[in-house]
Simulated scan of single mutants.
Amino acid sequence: MMSNDSTAKTLIVATILCVVCSVVVSWSAVSLRPLQEENKALDIKKNLLMTAGIVESTAQKKEIEEAYKQIEAKLVDLKTGEYVTDIKPSEYDANKAAKDPKRNYKIPSDEDLGNIKVRAKYGKVYFVKDGEETKSVVFPIHGKGLWSTMYGFLVLETDLNTVKGIGFYAHGETPGLGGEIDNPQWRAVWPGKKIFGENGNPQIQVIKGEARDASKFDIDGLSGATLTANGVTGTVRYWMGDDAYGPFIDKYTQGGGE
């Protein structure tokens, strides 16, 4: 019989303990995944609604789900600007599609203002409704800051040129510097600004220092976070440009809406 102090017995006990712990951790990860995915989806809905000015940051699940009934999502082919009708928007994951060579699009380097490199071929567009009337349009956007990929929403008035709001719900920018993109005071500068210049190209930009009062396109910079600010500019300009939502925006505005 092995001694309780033997090396072999110690190793056997340690091995059994490791196996049991691994099984428990694996089971927990698998069993909790649906709840994690549900909470992630709820958080994205909440941030969309907050950016659109529909709910406050204190909103809970019931209020979020009720408010989200005002949102109509559609899927758009970013190359043509046409709606995609054979896929339900709720069943389409742009992040997964961007990793699939059959469903993604490699962005030309001269077009890649957001330093994204590869995106999905299709993108979602969210319409904020009041009955049958569209009150605003929400575009999901993402692009590189200094340290991370920033994921957010850009809300436009129905002219698809006037900003109603912007918000980022996931990023890893430096707190107090690039993290200031979460600052409500900075986000409050965006409403009323214009996206497109007279030439039809995106002109909006986050500048160094304070914006001129008369400027329709300039957003106050982020002190000490120039690269993050440049990333926000590039991200917004890319997604509003011809290589992304531009064809849809043209069709929407020329066609008088949906």
Rank of each mutant, 00 (worst) to 15 (best):
N39G: 00
K40I: 05
K40Q: 12
K40V: 06
L42P: 01
L42M: 03
D43V: 05
D43R: 10
K45G: 02
N47F: 09
N47C: 09
T51Y: 06
T51P: 06
G53F: 11
G53R: 07
I54Y: 08
I54Q: 07
E56I: 13
S57E: 15
T58R: 14
A59K: 12
K62L: 14
E63P: 06
I64V: 07
E65G: 06
E65W: 01
E66S: 15
E66I: 15
K69D: 12
Q70G: 07
I71S: 03
E72N: 11
E72Q: 10
E72V: 15
K74T: 08
L75W: 05
L75Y: 03
V76F: 02
D77L: 08
K79N: 11
G81A: 05
Y83V: 07
V84M: 04
T85K: 12
T85D: 11
D86F: 01
K88H: 14
K88S: 14
P89C: 09
P89I: 02
S90G: 06
D93N: 10
A94H: 03
N95M: 14
A98F: 04
K99N: 05
D100H: 11
D100R: 14
D100W: 07
P101W: 02
K102G: 02
R103F: 01
R103L: 06
Y105H: 13
Y105C: 10
Y105V: 15
I107W: 10
D110N: 15
E111Q: 15
E111D: 15
L113Y: 12
G114C: 11
G114W: 08
G114Q: 13
N115K: 15
I116H: 10
I116W: 11
K117I: 14
V118M: 03
Y122T: 01
G123D: 12
G123C: 11
K124L: 07
K124F: 03
V125T: 10
K129E: 11
K129V: 09
D130T: 08
G131M: 09
E133M: 03
T134P: 07
T134C: 13
K135Q: 04
K135Y: 00
S136C: 02
S136L: 00
V137A: 05
V138N: 03
V138R: 04
V138P: 02
F139C: 04
G143D: 12
K144C: 02
L146C: 03
L146V: 11
T149Y: 05
M150G: 09
M150R: 12
Y151Q: 08
G152A: 04
G152P: 08
V155K: 00
L156S: 07
L156G: 05
L156N: 04
E157Y: 00
T158F: 03
D159I: 00
L160T: 03
T162D: 00
K164Y: 07
K164H: 08
F168H: 12
E173N: 13
P175H: 09
G176R: 09
G178I: 11
